[in-house]
Amino acid sequence: MPRTPRLALALTSTLTAGLALAVAPGTADATPGSGVSAVTLFDYTVGDTPYVLREITIAPGGSTGWHEHPGTLHGVVTKGVLSHFDATCKSDGVYKAGQSVSEGSNYVHIGKNLGSVPMVLDVLYTNPAGQPLAIDEPNPGCDFQ
C-alpha cells in the first residue's frame, strides 16, 4: 500500500476514535435528553468568564435528561411551558412563556415539556472558563425520566 493512503487511514482511525471518546457520555448511568435541540446565539468571553446565549427547544414529551451546570444560568421561556424537577423528584417550578428561571451551580435537575407544543427557552450561561455548559447526571431515583 502506498504511504499516503496508509497515513490517511491512520489519521482517519485516530480521528474516529477521538470523536467516539469525545461524544461518549461521562457517566455510565447518565440519563440522556430526548426531543431537545439547541442553537448557540452568542458565545463571548469577557476576562475569564465565558457568556453563552442559547435557544433551547424541547419537543412535546421531551426532556433535558438529568444534569447540572458548573456555573449559573438565567433563562426566559419564550414559548410553551417548562416543567422543572429537582433531585428529590419534586417539582421545583413550572415556567410559562414570559417567565424567567435561574439555576445555581451544581444543582441536579431535569427540565421536561409536558405540554402539546414545543417549549422554547433562551438561556444565558456563565460557567467557569473551560467548563462544559452542562454535566450529565444519573437519575437520582425518580420514577420518570
Rank of each mutant, 00 (worst) to 15 (best):
T12M: 10
Y107G: 12
S34L: 15
V81D: 08
T31P: 03
G93E: 05
L82M: 11
Q99G: 11
T49P: 01
S91G: 13
L73V: 09
C89R: 05
G18C: 12
V39H: 14
C89W: 05
D43G: 05
K90N: 09
V76H: 05
T49I: 03
G35S: 14
A59W: 03
P32G: 15
V52D: 03
V46W: 09
A22W: 15
I58H: 01
G98R: 07
C89V: 08
G75M: 02
P70A: 08
C89S: 11
I58R: 00
V108M: 12
D86E: 07
V39Q: 15
Y95T: 04
V76M: 11
A28M: 14
N106F: 10
L9F: 10
G93R: 07
A38Y: 04
T57C: 06
D48A: 13
L19V: 13
T57H: 06
K90S: 12
G71L: 03
A10D: 11
G33Y: 10
A30W: 12
T88K: 13
G18W: 12
S83R: 08
L21K: 14
A28H: 11
T12D: 10
L9W: 05
E103N: 10
H67Y: 01
T72Y: 06
V23P: 05
V52N: 00
S63F: 04
S63H: 02
P60E: 03
Y51T: 01
A8V: 05
A22D: 14
T27R: 15
T12Q: 11
G33W: 11
V46D: 13
P32I: 15
L53M: 01
T45R: 08
V36P: 09
G61A: 03
T78R: 08
